[in-house]
Design a protein around this nucleic acid. Structure first.
Length: 851
RNA sequence: GGGGCUAUAGCUCAGCUGGCUAGAGCGCACGAUUCACAUUCGUGAGGUCGUAGGUUCGAGUCCUACUAGCCCCACCA
């Protein structure tokens, strides 16, 4: 097939992807050692952003790399129902339609969102294809698929039976707009100016940001060491309030900071986490004053029904009128919890919720981490995670939204809970007792925390299907998911399967904009990966986003790297075009000849270079050094293959080796730039397979001596080029040599590569001596030009002298000779000798010109 | 309050167990060129490696302190 003049990514990329899908190239082969990655499931009905672009590039490199190495490879894709995110979007739809969640039952809402999601679904999956993701599509799992729900329920039951899940009345992070609870980890704190009110409180004055919770006060606390208030501890005091006097107990607790405010804290157990803990320690009761909609309750008396902020204002005014406010610090800055989706202030509210007892799970996870059962890249994340586990509190897994996995618990009128997975029924009857379903759903992280063993279907001791892929080889995800996701997967994986869910974790950082700023809609600096692909191609995007990036680091996205990637694709295309043209359209490789040692110096050198490159890339991939591996691919193809080998081959080549090296390069580059490499593979006249499913072939044995000789020629050519670039006047010069076998045998090559007018053997050398290489080679330059060049030579002499002095100084240092490794000292000596030989030639040259 | 990360060329970043003259891409400058590629080729300029100490024959690399920036956890009423 003919190669078009230019490579147009948008024209070829969809064809390549269609070919792979048609050939079922991404299905696990069933041969070789298993290598599996579970994809962090993107939102089923969303669009991919730049972060997805990065993870696809990285995970696809790993998958394609190991597939080409003959591993049984599974990259298992997923689609996330994105519980809360999607629910927020759908609730907005309801609002638009003039209805609300309260107009429907949970089951109706679930069915509606299901339809909504499936109408919107598909974009994400098309975008994964555009990015070149070689994931096993037939194994895709949606996070609300039947098998997910049943596995999650199985785990839930086991944890319930083991006492690891309990129901309890606890202070809960509650979003009054979205009407749902959140886990601690989902709450974001923002610094906000919140006036600090100093209020008269019985015999005390105390500082509070929340005077409206005063109706819920059941105690007042001071530090046990605080002598100022010691006499009140244990007493019950009367406090004047806006609704009349009430009585609270004074307790002493270490939680109180004597330095802050007046060193006195009012205790409102039902609306503050610290106060709750104090109340538990001192047996204080809890009184709810804010309801789930964010309004004041009965307990607020005449303020009942007011929204929190409204009530705060009214109460402060009432207190001022009563003279209960001593002063107000208006500039006080406080950390206020917010709903990460709508920005509503999160109210801590006392509620009955389902909790996971985390410490037993965390303990096991810590052991596994300390035993090195999971290897982290970057390593520091392991210790960060251990520290997190050590301080992990119980985990609220109830969500009051309909879009999620139903909590499989039913309650009798007597308040007794039973497990049942018949969650499609509103009530069940067991032994003549009717139990009613809890209408809450599970926190998404509770189910995604089980993801690796759900998708591989290993629960219940299964060994068929994808079970061989558990534990996964690696979990690749963003650093922001270390706590919410990775931590859960390790805990729940160990609990449910007895094994860690993956042997390694690689974490990537955030993709920042060009200037190193976080991308955000409000800043308008969001880069859409699909737009980059449309302009430069998918391969270019992948190469670009991977370049200059290292594990765990938040790093900028630089468009220049995308351009460099596009250029590499173009280079590859042109190499292929040249090779195909040089070999002819009916070229067929002769397999047998591949074993022969190549004929030319350049070919021996090339084989050596390709092998070294492959070794380097292998090591880089093993250590997750993606950017370095890509750089090596770039370098070997551009510098070694195109600039030296292809150029040299213009004077003569072995067709078989040329074809073989191109194939080798395509395999090296395929994981990084799958589209262009596959397209070339498909266009080559002599290949008929699919590159994606190829395996490695051997290169012929090469002669390192010949390779080294080629390197000598390279040095000679480089020095000629450098000298010619500096020489004044016209650039057409001859190279003269006296007796030199290597130059003699490669006259044409040197002439061609260095763009000389000729390479000539002479009996008497003249002109300008090339000093820096081991050969007696002179450029035929006349005296006039030499004189003009004198200044450059002098500069060079001075530089050399500096270097020589440095080396001499080092060698005259006794401790260096004694303590540095022998080889190093020897190397320094050799280096000095070489430098001295060069300076000798340069000096002679200078003297000759001056004469 | 606790923890982590980062600081190297104009920009974005490499530099893995300390070792010779600190690298790459982009950008910049100079030069080349019908015959694979201007998305090209050749050459070059540009860095006292954040600051100050220390360890060492030798420090961008290890240690200490400081400065600046980023992130995470906790949540002081």
């Amino acid at each position: 097939m003919k190669f078009a003049k230019t490579y147009e990514p948008n024209e070829y990329e969809p064809l390549a992807y269609a070919l792979w899908e048609g050939e079922e190239s991404f299905k696990p082969s069933g041969n070789g050692a298993p290598y599996a990655i579970t994809m962090p499931p993107p939102n089923a009905n969303g669009n991919l952003h730049i972060g997805h672009g990065l993870f696809v590039a990285l995970q696809d490199v790993l998958t394609r790399y190991y597939r080409l190495r003959g591993r049984d490879t599974a990259w298992i894709p997923g689609a996330d129902h994105a519980g809360f995110e999607t629910w927020v979007v759908y609730e907005r739809e309801l609002e638009k339609a003039g209805t609300s969640r309260f107009d429907f039952t949970r089951d109706e809402l679930y069915a509606q969102v299901w339809d909504f999601v499936h109408e919107q679904r598909g974009n994400m999956e098309l975008q994964l294809r555009a990015l070149g993701a070689s994931c096993s599509w037939s194994d895709l799992v949606f996070t609300l698929d039947e098998k997910v729900i049943s596995t999650v329920h199985k785990t839930f039951k086991r944890m319930w039976d083991d006492g690891l899940i309990y129901r309890g009345k606890r202070l809960t992070n509650f979003c009054t707009k979205h009407q749902t609870a959140f886990a601690d980890i989902e709450v974001g704190y923002k610094q906000e100016k919140t006036p600090l009110y100093y209020i008269k409180y019985g015999p005390f004055v105390l500082a509070t940001t929340r005077p409206e919770t005063k109706f819920g006060d059941t105690g007042v606390a001071v530090n046990p060491k605080d002598e100022r208030y010691a006499k009140y501890v244990g007493q019950e005091i009367t406090v004047e309030g806006v609704n009349g006097p009430f009585r609270v107990k004074v307790v002493a607790d270490d939680m109180v900071d004597m330095e802050f405010g007046t060193g006195v804290v009012k205790i409102t157990p039902a609306h503050d986490f610290n106060d709750w803990e104090v109340s538990q320690r001192h047996g204080l009761s809890a009184k709810q004053v804010i309801d789930q909609t964010g309004h004041m309750t009965e307990a607020a008396g005449r303020f009942k029904g007011m929204a929190v902020l409204e009530a705060r204002e009214a109460i402060v005014q009432a207190m001022q009128e009563k003279g209960l406010i001593e002063k107000i610090d208006k500039d006080y800055v406080n950390n206020v919890p917010h709903c990460y989706k709508c920005g509503t202030v999160i109210e801590p509210i006392l509620m009955d919720q389902w909790f996971v007892k985390t410490q037993p799970l965390a303990k096991r996870a810590i052991e596994a981490l300390k035993n090195g059962e999971v290897k982290f890249t970057p390593e520091s994340k392991r210790d960060v995670l251990i520290r997190y586990y050590e301080n992990l509190k119980d985990w609220n897994i109830s969500r009051q939204i309909p879009w999620g996995i139903p909590i499989p618990m039913f309650k009798s009128e007597a308040g007794e809970w039973v497990f049942s997975d018949k969650v499609d029924q509103e009530s069940i009857v067991v032994k003549d007792t009717t139990y009613t379903r809890d209408n809450d759903t599970l926190d998404t992280w509770f189910s995604s925390g089980q993801w690796p063993f759900i998708v591989t279907d290993v629960l219940g001791g299964r060994t068929d299907g994808l079970a061989r892929f558990y534990p996964n080889a690696v979990m690749e995800t963003g650093v922001d998911l270390l706590f919410p996701w990775v931590s859960r997967m390790i805990m729940l994986g160990l609990y449910a399967t007895g094994e860690v869910p993956f042997k390694e974790v690689y974490m990537h950082g955030l993709v920042l904009d060009e200037k190193g700023q976080k991308m955000s809609k409000s800043k308008g600096n969001v880069i859409n990966p699909m737009e980059v692909i449309a302009e430069f191609g998918s391969d270019a995007f992948r190469l670009g986003i991977m370049a200059s990036r290292s594990a765990g680091q938040n790093q900028a996205f630089s468009p220049s790297k995308v351009i460099a990637g596009r250029n590499l694709c173009n280079k590859l295309w042109n190499i292929a075009r040249f090779v195909q043209d040089a070999l002819g359209d009916d070229f067929k490789p002769t397999e047998s000849k591949v074993d022969d040692i190549p004929a030319s110096l350049a070919e021996n050198w090339l084989v050596g270079r390709l092998e070294a490159s492959k070794r380097k890339i292998d090591a880089d991939i093993k250590n997750y050094r993606f950017a370095e591996a890509a750089e090596e691919v770039y370098r070997v193809i551009w510098n070694d293959v195109a600039d030296w080998y292809i150029e040299a081959s213009k004077l003569g080549k072995s067709p078989d080796l040329m074809a073989l090296s191109l194939e080798f390069c395509l395999k090296l580059v395929h994981p990084f730039a799958p589209f262009v490499s596959e397209t070339i593979w498909q266009n080559l006249s002599w290949t008929s397979s699919v590159l994606c499913n190829e395996t490695w072939h051997k290169l012929p044995v090469h002669d390192p001596k010949k390779a080294a000789q080629f390197e000598e020629l390279q040095q000679l050519v480089s020095e000629i080029r450098l000298t010619l670039a500096e020489l004044p006047g016209k650039k057409h010069h001859k190279l003269l040599y006296k007796e030199d076998k290597l130059i003699e045998e490669n006259r044409e090559l040197v002439k061609f590569l260095a763009r000389l007018s000729d390479v000539e053997q002479v009996s008497e050398l003249r002109g300008l001596q090339l000093a820096a290489n081991g050969h007696e080679a002179w450029l035929d330059v006349d005296d006039k030009v030499l004189k003009e060049y004198l200044a450059d030579l002098e500069k060079r002499r001075i530089a050399l002298e500096g270097e020589i002095n440095g080396l001499k100084a080092r060698l005259s240092n006794d401790s260096y000779i004694k303590k540095a490794p022998q080889e190093l000292v020897e190397e320094t000596r050799q280096n000095l000798a070489e430098k001295e030989a060069i300076i000798h030639k340069v000096k002679a040259q200078i003297t000759a010109i001056k004469r």
